[in-house]
Amino acid sequence: MLTYLSRHLQVIFSTLGAMQRTPMASINTVLIIGIALLLPVCLYVTIKSGQALSDNWQGRPQISIFLRADTSASEAALIFNEIRLHPSVQLAELVTPQQALAEFRALSGLDYELKFLDDNPLPHSIVVMPDAGHARSEHLLELQAQLSKIEGIETIRLDLEWTDRFNAILKAAAKLSLVLSALLAVALILIIGNTIKLLIFNRRHEIEITKLVGGTDSFVRRPFLYYGCFYGILGALVSLLLLSGTAHLLQQPMAELAALYQRSQLLYRLGIEEIAIIVLSGAFIGWSAARWSVARHLRQIQPR
């Protein structure tokens, strides 16, 4: 077992040594892998950031309740009180028709035209913010049903559409990035496979002689599989470096954006498991590429 391990270590070191001897080819390959991996990784981070943002919105959705037009101010106050005391309501605000009209004036710029209205057509309304524990859409729908039983309410509007639409976009983006990642993996396998092929033919003589003295196919194959793995791992590390560089560049604008949303952190930070998965995927892609290349080319090299 120990021999087996030390044998593998030996192959690993000689592989690293060989990579050092042809630094340009290795660096090029690693860079290509890194850049190619950067795209799906970036997409992933973007989607994750978006999801965090959308979760955050869902935490502070608004419910707008419009009372019937003929509701008097005292009736409105009673209804407002009832809603305010509902257990899943965190915050509620009563908007009188006068306030609503003033706001509408300010927003619409229809100041002049509105002057001709002798009656304020706007009803009383109540803006409700549910507490964090009842922020998911299903809870909101339930809350809406409960509130609608209260006498004097005309309509209740949930601000769900926006987040739903955003989530749908995120889902589509996630699907797209999966497809893209799969295509990139294929491209990477072709690229790494080609580099391995060059390595195989560079070491043709050595392979022939190793076979002559009784080296099995799996022995001859091993260093090339390691090559593939190393390329993949180094490429993944390069893509992570590039990612953190990109994040660094985005830091300033993102901080401004984060301040707008009252959040300290807008960009999703990769966890240790995700980093491990990215590195392992790199290793796996490299290994598969090497496997494929070796299967195609090693058989062609026979001692003469």
Binding site: H205, E206, I209, K211, L212, V213, G215, T216, D217
Partner: peptide
């Protein structure tokens, strides 16, 4: 797949050395 094991039983000195 058995050829490597055959070759391990045979030591060969090649006319052109075949050294690395």
């Amino acid at each position: 797949s058995k050829v490597p094991y055959l070759r391990r039983e045979i030591g060969v000195i090649f006319q052109d050395h075949k050294l690395l």
